[in-house]
Simulated assay, not measured.
Amino acid sequence: MLRVLVFLAVLALPVSAQETQVGFGGGGHDASAPVEVAADNLEVDQATGRATLTGNVVIAQGTLRLSAGTVTVDYTTEGGNRRIERLNAAGDVLIVAGQDAAEGQEATYLLDSSEILLSGDVVVTQDGVTLAGDRLAVNLATGSGTVSGRVRTTLQP
């Protein structure tokens, strides 16, 4: 019922607002958890510190799941150790965190800050309610997110 009230409040906002706050994933995501990867192909460029995964890419970290056609993994080196800095996904991106799901065309996941930016015809599904917009910015650690750019939803009576 609370989500319906939130969506009603969103509809009452002036059109110029075009942004709404959403919860996503429930918060408490552990960005230090191991990252599991599956893909049809892997190409590694040691010189640039970049790995490119293509074909049925699925990446999991704790309760977070990301799937896409292509994912580029950027590494950083600190104290002689390489670690994942960011994931850049493209092509029918699907992100699932707990009971929440979001779809779009491109996503960037910054592991240090647990932030994801999803763009390109974004659709967020939570508890059977669908919210759409141009972009979704989510902080997985806090569970807070913002859908922006021509936000729209359908309310069920």
Rank of each mutant, 00 (worst) to 15 (best):
M1F: 13
M1S: 15
M1R: 13
L2R: 11
R3S: 09
R3D: 10
L5T: 06
V6E: 14
V6W: 06
F7S: 06
L8F: 07
A9Q: 10
L11S: 08
L13C: 09
L13M: 09
V15D: 08
V15F: 02
V15W: 03
S16C: 07
S16M: 09
A17K: 12
Q18W: 07
T20N: 01
T20Y: 10
T20C: 11
V22Y: 04
V22L: 14
V22S: 03
G25A: 08
D30S: 13
D30W: 07
A31D: 08
S32C: 04
S32V: 08
P34T: 13
E36G: 12
E36H: 15
E36T: 11
A38R: 10
A39C: 01
A39F: 02
N41D: 12
L42K: 01
L42I: 07
V44G: 04
V44C: 02
V44H: 10
Q46W: 08
T48I: 04
G49M: 06
G49P: 05
T52V: 15
L53R: 01
T54S: 10
N56Y: 03
I59R: 02
A60W: 01
G62T: 01
R65S: 11
L66M: 13
L66S: 00
G69L: 05
V71F: 06
V73A: 14
T76A: 13
G80E: 07
G80Q: 09
R82N: 13
A89M: 01
D92R: 14
V93I: 09
L94D: 07
L94I: 12
I95P: 03
Q99K: 10
Q99W: 02
D100T: 05
A101S: 14
A101K: 15
A102W: 04
A107T: 02
T108Y: 00
T108D: 05
L110T: 13
L110G: 11
L110P: 01
L110K: 08
L110H: 12
D112A: 15
D112F: 01
D112Y: 01
S113G: 11
L117D: 10
L118H: 08
S119Q: 15
D121N: 09
V123S: 09
V124W: 06
T125M: 05
Q126A: 04
D127K: 09
T130K: 12
L131C: 03
L131S: 04
G133H: 02
D134Y: 02
N139M: 01
L140W: 04
L140P: 01
T142H: 11
G143E: 04
G143F: 06
G143A: 15
T146F: 10
R150A: 04
T153V: 03
T153G: 11
T154C: 02
T154Q: 14
L155A: 10
Q156V: 12
Q156T: 15
